[in-house]
Design a protein around this nucleic acid. Sequence first.
RNA 1: GGGGCGAUAGCUCAAUUGGUUAGAGCACCGGCCUGUCACGCCGGAGGUUGCGGGUUCGAGCCCCGUUCGCCUCGCCA
Length: 633
Amino acid sequence: MFTRTHTCGELRASHIGQTVRLNGWVNSYRDHGNLIFIDLRDRYGVTQLVFDTDDAKNAGAADAGDKHAHTGMMGAADKLRNEDVISVEGTVRIRSGGENPKLDTGKVEVVVTSLVLLNKTENPPFLPDVIGTLPNEEVRLKYRYIDLRRPAMQKIVSTRSKALQSVRKYFVDANMFTEVETPVLYKSTPEGAREFLVPCRNVPGSFYALPQSPQLFKQILMVSGCDRYLQICRCFRDEDPRADRQAEFTQIDLEMSFVRREHIMTMMEGFVRHFWKDMLGYDVPPMQRMTYRNAMETYGIDRPDTRYGLHITDISEIAAKTDFKVFRDALAKGADRPRFNSKRGVVKAIRVPGGAEKLTRKITDGYSDLAKRFGAGGVATAKYIADPAGAKFDTGCAKFLEPIKAELVAALGLEPGDTLLFIADTYSVATKAIGELRQQVARDTNVVPKPGAEGGPWNFLWVIDFPMFEKNKDTGKWIAMHHPFTAPRDDQRDLFVSASVDDDDTIESIVSAGYDIVLNGSEIAGGSVRIHDRDVQSKVFQLLGLTPEQAKEKFSFLLEALSFGAPPHAGIAFGFDRLIMHICGTDNIRDVIAFPKTQVGADLMTRAPSAATPAQLKDLFIASTWTPEPSKA
RNA sequence: GGGGCGAUAGCUCAAUUGGUUAGAGCACCGGCCUGUCACGCCGGAGGUUGCGGGUUCGAGCCCCGUUCGCCUCGCCA
């Protein structure tokens, strides 16, 4: 009936003379009266169809008809509009009007002898064949099925599909991983991200949670002897989204038994190499490694973008030698703390080459606002300029810098024409603020290369040696930096076991066996060697402030499993959506998800979430406490 | 929860510092056109300027509130 013989991207000069049937959407039409061109589109491409009164008759169309009388096939072709779905039969021939080099099928056209209108469309809100600006995202999301017809979106969808195959090829086919599915209805463990809850009808008043990750199941699988586990799984975190983050996202979840850090890093680096080769033909060079401390010191962030310099320098010792109140006050904070302690007062600086010209007063004024958003007091600035009497500091806090000029020039490699930016505060505040500042300066001075997909460098990086714990600013309690099942680095075990609950400085200094993969400033994977020793796991819970009773209530199954022959194991999870973003060169995660959600978790197409009926709630023993706020107007 | 930006025809955008009947391109409807490929030509229809208040002789424009979308801080073990 309408079984096609070819796709719309398939026909070439070699098909000339053949009778073919094509199905697809009307991409555009050019109506010349008794000659009508239709560009027919499917996901493989576009083919030009011709409806010609004379030709159709010559080609043997049963009912060629006449457009002006609105009869037969010509009359029907005259009524075709963009996005109508049609099936046509016809003959392939060379284009007599010259080829169209923009189309893969541009040498040929199909003279239609039979037209079937499979489905007439309403006037669509926008056309997949976008000329100029895309409609705004609200419209694209509401009519997602139209947006997905766009070739650019079709390409992403198929790239994502190919990527899934590539993942399985490496792990399952080549490296003996077993793909295992774990529950989506899961036990609530209210550490970490906020969870989505699912009421349980059979046990009134109780709830499942949707998993933030299958972390504990995959560890239990290791105890089960699974040995090498893979799951391409959906995870749920009820937190506000960002450009590269959705509440519902996909992870490539992995775990291996009988390995330590080096083994799993080698395996995963092999995957990255395979994946980029498979997807883009790119050979990933051996990946650099950077410690967390080095990343924080030099880049002010745990996922450094190493495609550009603008390195951060700690000038605390030099800054102590000048009488600048901003520096002095900062350095007085936690002066008795160890060198890298989060509470120690520090002064950090960035040298911006050529900044004296590139960074206007307006731009640098904005930097203080940026620093304030991250808790710092502001940004001190000074230009270093050429002068007949020798290069000198100018503007900003210049006069305070003259006494330490020689040392600053040596420490920072200053050249005339540079601008210096300073942030002075506690280690944790100054580090974060100047790390954000560095990225803003990079954007302002145009030193960020195009993304790798557009020909820029792919800078892969392992970040290792994370702290085990960090302090929660609000509660003052220790929390696991990665998660509570992360093991201390092998050489830290004695220090860890000896740490007492109230010894903050020691707890802060313990290094974990965690590792992240960072690509161009974006975290694409994170994992760790896991704790496989029940006593070590109990100690972690203790340091996190869980009583033995609480630990048992929440994690008894894990502690029991660890005591019944748990092998050493380690794992990692890749953010699959982010991998696809990099491969496709987009900075919007919604572009790589077929049916994404908005900032408030809404699906604009289906209108989810929606209210439940009283009957549904009654079945679930749920009552809502929500009431609309009375209007203030 | 906080900050920023935005919303005008189906879509993308205009609309002089608050002043006539809110315009254009594309899409749509009608007509013409036999070699186009962003086809062309003639004509037409299409608006609660997101919504609700307010200021004003007069509001798309100013003020307040609100809804929705995007970016972001917090958050994301």
